[in-house]
Amino acid sequence: MMALQRGPTVIWLLLMAATLVGAGSAGAEGWGFALVMLAATFKAQLIVRYYMEMHAAPLAWRLVFDGLVGLSGAIILGLHLLA
């Protein structure tokens, strides 16, 4: 699998865009909040994969960090929807 080499600047633009999407949905509840968490998880994954260079890390570490990011998003959204 080819690792995507994106410059830090492209990542920054994506992070800013996702931030605006997330903040724009502020105050949304239920499934509207899902959009917020999707944006947040997407941002977290960008940071982990590109800024923290997990795309180049051994599989075990990639899985650990993917797991941490996924778990964060899942717990927040999941418990939000359960409330």
Partner: peptide, 16 residues
Amino acid sequence: DLLWVFLFAMLYLQGA
């Protein structure tokens, strides 16, 4: 940065 992304969403952006 990563931790703040989740804190921001959880504390500030969650609706009623």
